[in-house]
Write a protein that binds this DNA or RNA. Structure first.
Lengths: 148, 148
DNA sequence: TGACTCATGTCAGTATCCTGACATACCGTT
DNA sequence: AACGGTATGTCAGGATACTGACATGAGTCA
């Protein structure tokens, strides 16, 4: 191993990617025993908080395209985790809801993920956490400003 | 659109993913005119700072597998951006270095990416930036502690 | 020296996600 | 009522990254 990180690690962007990568890996490890991917978990969590979300809304919330979310929803419907009406009650929107099995597995998954997040925040004071929260939100807003 | 973000957006993990997603999208937009992907840019930047890195080391630095980095390096070698010896001078490690064309395009790419990062940090004081830096590093360290 | 462990490069197969495209349904204005 | 703009769900194709596996070379230790 040569010397790693001379100037790149001084970049907030690089560190942001590193943190997100580490968090994703930790979540994958935590969710693997349950047979869930991170995207599937995000989808279930979104549905628990906002029942009846459309596929496109779920896609935006999970940061994937609506096409990817569509195949994911079909699989989760087949597995009995979510339910969608066969036909759209209004327009083309197919409102998705948690099935009992989905609610059950989400409960376990949520506990695992919460443990990961707690571990991630250990050593940070509440003040530091809220400061980081504000900083990240500021970054998101600034980046979205022009990128549309 | 139903109501979005009730509790999920209060999660630092979710916000971290959102920020990383926004940053990646902004970087993709900035690098697309140059015909570079974010991973390719990361690879070039790593090589500029640490010439002679092996494929595996580059993979770790860019947060991809060494297999993915390998195909990426083959393409970049074909495009004349990097050079690798035909045979390993020692062991199996193939030290990679920037070619003149790679150094040239990296110069342009680096300017674009720097502009994105500047935009991302607008509205944050230097104190807030370094506090966020410390917080992200703390998260990475905590997550890596057990995940091995 | 020989056995063991680890890291690297590479090949093959698979999975995941994305881009492009189309038809349909709502909403606004004219 | 008719139109254009927007949003949704879906299909097809391709790009990208990953997992699994193998052989090779270096380092360690008995």
């Amino acid at each position: 191993m040569s010397q790693d990180g001379v100037a790149l690690e001084t970049s907030l962007g690089y560190l942001l990617k590193e943190a997100a990568s580490a968090l994703r890996a930790a979540m994958e490890d935590a969710l693997r025993p349950l047979g869930l991917t991170v995207t599937q978990y995000a989808c279930l969590e979104l549905l628990a908080q906002c029942p009846g979300l459309s596929g496109s809304e779920l896609a935006r919330g999970a940061f994937v395209t609506r096409q990817s979310m569509n195949v994911l929803l079909q699989a989760m419907e087949r597995d009995g985790y979510v339910t969608r009406p066969a036909e759209a009650p209004v327009g083309k929107v197919l409102p998705t809801r948690l099935a009992p099995d989905g609610r059950r597995i989400l409960e376990k998954a949520s506990a695992e993920v919460r443990a990961v997040e707690v571990r991630m925040l250990e050593g940070m004071t509440a003040t530091e956490q809220s400061a980081t929260f504000a900083a990240l939100r500021s970054m998101v807003d600034s980046l979205r400003a022009d990128g549309t």
